[in-house]
């Protein structure tokens, strides 16, 4: 059998090389499709921002303007709502409380999740897969199931209405999440790195802190972002475990409805202020976030 192709056949095919579309036409077509996707994306972003804009808009208005007429932007710009929040300790302490337990939770979680994720990514041990699955089920456990026992558990150990109580409670879903993300990042670091370090005489703790953690820096950054996110947005547990001393801002916001009606301006301003920490955090990790969102699993 001969594989040589007929020359005439090849010649005939070869004529297709210069197609009917001119380069200019093609460029136009590409540009048009690019503009179309820009437009769609822009449209989505605008629709997405609109509710947040509305909140911002209201937070800069007086209650009488909010309730009086429909205005697309503040006619009488006022910062009174914000000033009110920042001068009232029961308001701003809500932010301090939220920040405090979120920070504590991030610290505790990352400290215990790092070694555990390392164990999952490097070793097999009895029951490892089942343990991992059990962890993930905690990610899915609806907090509503646990509300009452939580209250009683923390009450009986004397932690009720402390920041650490909320921080510990949020470990329920944050530790599994952290292990899940970190395990993905760690598995993409070749095992040879570990072995080389041991041969070079590094002890495990020294290797872990000096070599391994710097290698998965971006993974840790992304993990912290997720920990922040889920601890910051969760309120059901935080509300149940606190009364006055450690109450999160989300709870304090409900106070805006009084007998004389709802103080819309303050509510909106408080809402805007809950968004700001998120913006800051996402700004800091923006360069790693694209990779990190796949949870190290692409």
């Amino acid at each position: 059998m001969s594989y040589k192709l007929e020359n005439s056949q090849r010649g005939e095919k070869y004529n297709t090389i210069f197609s009917k579309i001119s380069p200019a036409q093609r460029r136009n077509r590409n540009a048009r499709s690019r503009w179309r996707s820009r437009l769609l994306l822009g449209l989505y972003l605008v629709l997405m921002i609109l509710p947040i804009y509305w909140l911002l808009n209201m937070s800069l208005q007086t209650n009488s303007e909010i309730l009086g007429s429909m205005t697309l932007w503040p006619q009488n710009l006022t910062f009174d709502n914000y000033i009110g929040i920042f001068t009232n300790s029961s308001w701003y302490m809500g932010y301090v409380n939220s920040m405090l337990y979120v920070a504590m939770n991030m610290l505790i979680t990352i400290c215990v999740a790092l070694p555990a994720a390392y164990a999952f990514s490097r070793y097999t041990f009895i029951g490892d897969k089942h343990l991992f699955f059990w962890l993930l089920t905690n990610l899915m456990a609806p907090p509503a199931v646990f509300l009452l026992p939580y209250f009683q558990l923390y009450y009986s150990v004397g932690l009720f209405d402390t920041h650490i109580a909320v921080a510990l409670a949020h470990c329920l879903f944050n530790i599994p999440l952290a292990i899940w993300i970190l395990e993905g990042f760690m598995s993409s670091v070749p095992k040879e790195i570990d072995e080389t370090a041991y041969i070079d005489g590094y002890s495990f703790p020294r290797f872990f802190v000096k070599i391994f953690i710097p290698m998965i820096r971006s993974g840790i950054g992304v993990t912290l972002f997720f920990l922040f996110m889920f601890s910051w947005v969760e309120l059901l547990l935080a509300r149940t475990l606190t009364a006055t001393d450690a109450q999160p801002i989300g709870m304090i916001m409900t106070r805006t409805s009084t007998a004389s009606g709802i103080d819309w301006g303050t509510l909106a301003a408080a809402g805007v202020l809950t968004i700001i920490p998120g913006i800051l955090v996402v700004y800091f990790v923006r360069n790693h976030i694209a990779k990190g969102f796949a949870l190290g699993r692409t």
Binding site: Y14, T16, I17, F18, S19, P23, R26, R27
Partner: peptide
């Protein structure tokens, strides 16, 4: 390509 300028030709049309 064979004396013809193909600078702008995308890969799919260069055979």
């Amino acid at each position: 390509f064979d004396g013809q300028r193909v600078n702008e030709l995308p890969p799919e049309e260069r055979n």
